[in-house]
Amino acid sequence: MEADIRFFLTVTLNGLTLAALYFLVASGFTLVFGLMRVLNLAHGVVYLFGAYVGFNVMEATENWALAIIVGGIAGAVFGLLVHLAILSWMPGQELRQTLATIAVSVIAADLMIAKWGGLSYQIEIPDILFGSQTLPFVGRYPIFRLALLGFAVGVGFLLWLMLNRTRLGMMIRAGVDDRDMLAAMGTNVPAVFVAVAALGAFLAGVAGVIGGSALAISPGEDTRVLLSSLVVVIVGGLGSVGGAAVGAILVGLAEQFGLAYTPTYGVVYTFAIMVAVLAMRPQGLFGAGA
C-alpha cells in the first residue's frame, strides 16, 4: 500500500517535470500563434536545430550556460529567416503559411540528418545537476528533473513579466486582441511580428538545449516535440501562455500515468485527450473563441 502511494507520487512528479519540458517548448509556439495566427509547424525543427548547436557548443567549450544561450540564438536566427524569407510574404494567409512551414520542416529535418547523421547525442549537464536527491514521500529523485521544474517556472515568470510589464508585451497583448486596431494606433505591426517570431524561436532553441540535456537528441525528435507541443497548446488553447501551462501539465501527467499503468496504450492517450478537448471545445480549454 505504502509502495503504491509512493509509486503514485513518483509518477505524478514525473508527469509534472515532463510537463515543465513541454511548457518550455510550447510557450514560444503559442506566443507566435497568439499574435500572428501562424501555426508554425517548423517549431520542431527549430527545437532540434537548437539542440544540435547546443551539443556542438558544449563539446567545444564544456560550458552548459553558453550552450543554452547559443542554442537559443541559433533557434532565433533560424526562426527569423523563416519568418522574413517565407512567412512575411503571405501575411494573413494562415493556411498557406502553415503549409509552407511543413515544407520548411521537411527540408530542415533532412539537412540536419545530412549534417549530424542518424546517430543520437546527449548534451552533458553540469555535475551538480547530475544524480539524485532524497525527497519526502517520494524517495530518491533525479536532481535534473527538479531543475527542469525550476526552469519552466522561471521562464513562465519572465514571459509573464514581459507580457504584462513591458511596452513590447503591451503591444503583443493588444495585437492578440485586435491586430487592425494596433496598426491603426500607429504601431509598426510587422516589426512586432519580427520580434515575436525571433522570441518564439529563441525559446524553442533554448528548449532544445535543455531538452537535449534531459533526453537524447536524434532525428525524428523534431516531429515528436512538434506533436506534443501541438497537443499542449491546442488542449490549453492556442495563443494563451497560461493555457500552455495547463495543457502541458495535463499532457505530461497523461503520458506518465499512461506509461506507468498501461504501457501498451499509454502513447495513445495524449492524442485521445486532444481529440476529446477539440471535439467538445474547439478553441481549447483557455482559448478565446476560435
Binding site: L39, V267, L278
Partner: peptide, 24 residues
Amino acid sequence: IAVRCFGIYMIMITLAIAVAFFYL
C-alpha cells in the same frame, strides 16, 4: 468529431486522429 472545427483547427484535430490511429 471534427464537425465544429474550422480552418487550421480542422487540420489539427484530424492530424491528432491520424497520429492516434498510427500508435493504436
